[in-house]
Design a protein around this nucleic acid. Structure first.
Lengths: 227, 227
DNA sequence: TCTCCGCCTGTTGTATACAACACATGATCT
DNA sequence: AGATCATGTGTTGTATACAACAGGCGGAGA
């Protein structure tokens, strides 16, 4: 009988690790859209051969974050404004569904994590930082999706969020949106959501979230027109 | 200057071909849930090595149709009843969204294809055949999703449909649901949809579709309880 | 000077050999 | 007889060498 204190990393663990790292780099603009990645370089960075790495790249390609072209390279995708609008419209509707399909009973642990997040966002308001904002934003969405017990819906919302997150960050940087203002709005959203969850009103929490997705897209559109 | 009459198959074409073939085999129960596939066998069947084939398997795994286990094999996934219900609830809501988000103006070509499909389903009523039913069902969903111009929504509906299609077929076979009756209901659905599209009422077409998804799930539940 | 062709370099795609792993089978010991 | 361990077999995971391909560069020719 052998009970190792810590399971040694299996193929799946290595895959998940590389996948998460690369996904975050793309979504937090460490690799801006158009960046050409080298399989060989990435493989050596992760201390593995191209074969397992390619498996990760194929996954990221199926998630719409990469595109491999034979003889050219693996390029970080960009998103044209047309499809972006469709994605945002869809995300808006799905946000409402989060409160309709299988709403979870209020979870104290979730509430605590969100309140912690609120504090961190408030702290960020002192010293605005776009990348840190992106990190907290990702974390918030991930936690918030826990309000539904509908797993397929959760996965789809997560996926669509990751497709638009970097465009949102990019637009913030390029169009000179006031990061500090966005941080304040973000903090307010979290607090509004917390108030709704505190009284067990999951549906309202979802609607609050919906309005913020919709409004953030509109702000982005306005900012891009002014530039 | 060289203009080949027909583009020779590129890596992407081969990938798409293998992907479609294997996906259909899984969704039409040629490979029932639990089937163990052999990478080597499939590779030799497609006249290629394991490497390109594995790329396809990774994609199918990300789509929830397969699961690879080191040292064991690549197994066609089954779906437990709990997640199935969540998926159906979600599909029901998304079907309604198909008529709300970016409804396409009625397309004569789409209308023609659906009417052709209607005729084929009516013809099938003479000699019921579960597999043929599955094929026409897949084709109908694929065409019907053309009523929205929202690409992300279309892809998601397609993906979720493919995840539940085989369970639906399996249940039809196992629970001894009357295939002929399902064929008639299916034919009626297409005709209802056609009537809505004929007058340009895309929203109603989507709602008709929604009711049929919901009712087909309920019929499946009832049939499985009786067995 | 401009154009076009061939080569060179770097990239992804493919094939193949081998490692790691899970499971069944059968021998062996108790 | 039962349990246990070694071993064989088949599978997926990994590494690596090579093929296919795209694009840039430079030189030759008009």
């Amino acid at each position: 009988m052998n009970f190792p204190a810590e399971a040694l990393p299996t193929a799946r663990d290595r895959f998940d690790r590389m996948h998460t790292v690369l996904r975050n780099r793309i979504c937090l603009l460490d690799y801006p859209p158009g960046t050409r990645l080298s399989e060989a370089d990435l493989a050596s960075e992760f201390g593995t051969s191209r074969t397992p790495l390619r498996r990760v790249l194929v996954r990221l390609e199926s998630e719409g974050l990469l595109q491999s072209v034979h003889g050219v390279g693996t390029i970080v995708t960009d998103v044209e404004i047309g499809e972006l609008e469709q994605t945002y419209q869809l995300r808006t509707e799905l946000a409402e569904l989060l409160g309709v399909l299988g709403p979870n009973p209020p979870d104290p642990a979730l509430w605590d994590r969100l309140q912690l997040l609120s504090a961190e966002v408030r702290a960020l308001a002192e010293k605005p930082d776009a990348r840190r904002f992106g990190e907290l934003n990702m974390e918030f969405f991930h936690e918030f999706h826990g309000i539904t017990s509908n797993l397929p819906l959760r996965e789809i919302c997560e996926r669509l969020f990751l497709q638009t997150a970097r465009i949102w960050l990019k637009s913030m940087a390029a169009a000179q949106i006031d990061v500090a203002a966005e941080v304040r709005i973000f903090a307010d959203e979290i607090d509004e959501v917390l108030r709704a969850l505190a009284i067990g009103d999951v549906r309202s929490a979802a609607l609050i979230h919906r309005t913020h997705i919709s409004m953030s897209y509109t702000r982005m559109r306005i900012a891009s027109r002014h530039s």
